[in-house]
Simulated scan of single mutants.
Amino acid sequence: MRRYRELLYVLVSRNLKTRYRGSFLGVYWSLLNPLIMTVLYTAIFGTTFASYYGNSIPNYVLAAFTGLVVINFFSASTSQALSSVVTNGALLNKISLPVSIFPVSMVAANIFQFSVGALPLLAVITWIYSKNIVNVMALLFPFLALVLVCTGIGFLVSALYVFFRDLPYFYELVVFVLWISSPVFYPAAIVPSQVKRFLGLNPLSSIIESLRQIALSAALPDWGLIGNALLSGIIILSLGWFCFQMWRSQFMDLL
């Protein structure tokens, strides 16, 4: 476990240094996209959807920002994990390493970005709205669910990419479908009940709704929402890990 931890640290450091070498803002660039998109969504939809957030444009701004940081974290971490095994194929052919460390390192790099960027901002917003340390601490639970989902999907897509090199083009469509079916820029209340049952299959929906409930209301955390998010994360992580381990023995012939 100590060697695994040290290797993970090396890979995450390499990933972040390569990604932000010579960058002025460094990891804080990860905040720029959701902030710009929040401004854009507010300009287009703010007046229309503000009524679902207490007739408050600032409430809509914060709700849109919360949804965007979730979908951006998911898109970045899983897309980077997708190619991680194949990209490091030459290294795996020379040195015996735990293959699963590569998709995990991509998710871990994004966890670091989130922890120094969006998470402190969400914590401040939560404290302003709830004035309750319980709500601030409870932010970690939907974030943990998001990490579990991303790690499970990362295992799955990184394994599939070894066999199907056209996967990135298809996965872009998958991410778009998950984004549009998640209540990112629109409130979940406007979705028709007939459609909502299908959108409920989207694991990101419960995570976004849980984060919003914790951060933007004065009420105590809804443990039902948190439980659903964590359960989805555990199921997806288990499925992704099972598939990764089942196919791992065939990787070296194709790398």
Score class of each variant (00 low, 15 high):
Thr126Cys: 15
Ser249Val: 12
Thr66Ala: 09
Ser206Asn: 08
Tyr41Gly: 11
Leu32Pro: 04
Val104Phe: 11
Gly154Met: 12
Leu239Ser: 01
Arg165Thr: 04
Ala109Trp: 00
Ser75Tyr: 03
Leu146Ile: 04
Trp247Cys: 11
Phe164Lys: 11
Ala76Asn: 14
Leu160Ile: 07
Ala76Ser: 13
Phe24Ile: 10
Val149Leu: 13
Ala123Lys: 00
Phe170Glu: 06
Asn135Arg: 10
Ile57Ala: 10
Thr87Pro: 02
Ser83Arg: 14
Val149Gln: 05
Leu156Asn: 06
Leu8Pro: 11
Ala229Val: 00
Pro142Tyr: 06
Gly22His: 10
Ile214Gly: 12
Thr66Val: 01
Val39Leu: 15
Leu92Glu: 05
Leu178Ser: 05
Ser217Cys: 07
Asn228His: 10
Gly233Trp: 09
Pro203Arg: 01
Glu6Ser: 13
Val27Gln: 13
Arg21Asp: 13
Leu146Tyr: 02
Val175Leu: 15
Met137Asn: 05
Ser13Glu: 15
Ser100Leu: 08
Ala145Leu: 04
Arg21Ile: 05
Ser96Asp: 10
Leu91Pro: 06
Asn202Gly: 07
Val10Thr: 10
Val175Thr: 09
Phe242Pro: 02
Leu173Gln: 07
Phe112Val: 15
Asn72His: 14
Ile214Phe: 07
Ala50Tyr: 02
Phe114Ile: 01
Ala219Ile: 05
Leu16Gln: 02
Gly89Asp: 10
Val99Cys: 12
Val136Leu: 11
Met252Thr: 09
Phe112Pro: 06
Leu139Phe: 04
Ile180Lys: 10
Met252Cys: 07
Ile95Val: 15
Phe141Leu: 14
Asn110Trp: 06
Leu91Gln: 09
Ser249His: 14
Val191His: 12
Pro120Met: 02
Ser75Phe: 03
Phe163Arg: 12
Ala76Met: 12
Ala108Pro: 00
Gly233Pro: 04
Ala90Trp: 12
